Amino acid sequence: MNTNTTNTSVLLAGATGYLGGYIAKELQIRKIETKILVRNLEKTAHLKSEHSTIFQVEVTQAESLKGLFKGVNTVISTVGITRQKDGLTYMQVDYQANKNLLDEAKRAGVRKFIYVSVLNGRLHRNLKMVEAKEAFVDELLQSGLDFTVVRPNGFFSDMKDFLDMAKKGRVYLFGSGEQKFNPIHGQDLAAACIDAIGSVKTEIGIGGPDILTHNEVAQMALLANGKPINIVRFPHAIRKFVLWCFRTFTSSKTYGPIEFFLTFMGDDAIAPRYGCHRLSTFFQQEMDVIQKADK
């Protein structure tokens, strides 16, 4: 992967999220001039540096972006709904907000657009959380800009769900629990996103260094909590029934994250390995933070 970022000026959208914060820090470490777009200035203390300028905008409103792309040659966007509860839809954020960024980038003569989607997104366009992301990827394909779609496996931050279950002394899985995946730490993924500035690849699948089964992650979470190994495995038929119930009786705002989680709990999700952070270490660090807070 070509990591040359000489004479690069970046506009970063989505910096207050899990991954965006790590990207902002990595840009600072590499001393890359950066414009950071945020909705809430109260969440930006950790983003300030001598190489960054912070702008308060609403990316779902195209007019708020005008003039901000001047002098920028690369846009990095991690904009998307995960567990937000602000009333906006996936199409309004994951698709339209990113399209607003893309349209303004084209008008300003930006050279490259880097967008963070999900692993195997094309295979899961039927999911509400993925549908809008892939609709935006379609826009990138037709944009005429150089672009790279970064497709990560699960984030370490998402693995806190295992810790939360383990805290109560039991972890619930589906099937045999032998489904494999390799989640990635935000710091490792951030480095890969910035390396993509100099890459000629239009798509990069990426995961962490360790390929783990769901059983192994459950065991790690229980051990980190100081709990005995107690894993309950439900048949996939129950997982599919729960999916049907949520899709039938709740709104997409409610079932979107659950649909995404339950779907990916049913299959292997292995991406090319990258980085050096281990999930077991992350779990222990999270528990150390919790224990200190409880004292």
Rank of each mutant, 00 (worst) to 15 (best):
F147V: 02
E259H: 10
V149M: 05
V79A: 06
K227A: 08
H277S: 15
N120D: 06
Q219K: 14
G17A: 02
R107S: 13
T248Y: 08
V200R: 12
A191E: 10
N120E: 02
N73T: 11
L101K: 01
F162I: 09
K180W: 13
R107E: 14
L47I: 03
Y274V: 07
S199L: 09
M220R: 04
L223E: 08
T82Y: 06
T3M: 12
D288R: 15
I211R: 01
K70F: 11
P272H: 11
A108C: 12
F260M: 06
N40E: 15
K106V: 07
K99P: 05
Q291E: 09
P235G: 14
A166M: 05
K31Y: 09
K66I: 03
W244Q: 04
V149N: 05
G208Q: 01
F249R: 15
L37R: 02
Q92C: 15
S64F: 05
M159D: 05
I76M: 01
L12D: 09
V200F: 08
R111Q: 14
P257A: 03
P235S: 11
G205L: 13
G17T: 01
A62P: 07
I258G: 01
N120Q: 02
Y172F: 15
P209W: 08
P228I: 09
H214I: 00
T74N: 04
H214S: 02
K70S: 15
F136D: 02
E259A: 06
G207I: 04
M165K: 02
A24S: 15
P209I: 09
S157F: 13
P209S: 15
R151E: 11
L41V: 13
E259P: 06
I204P: 14
L41T: 03
R125D: 15
Q179G: 07
K160V: 01
R247F: 11
V200G: 12
D268L: 01
Q187N: 15
K201S: 06
E286N: 10
D188N: 09
K128W: 08
K168E: 15
K292H: 11
E134V: 03
G80Q: 13
Q84K: 06
G109N: 10
R125L: 02
W244H: 11
I231L: 13
L140P: 09
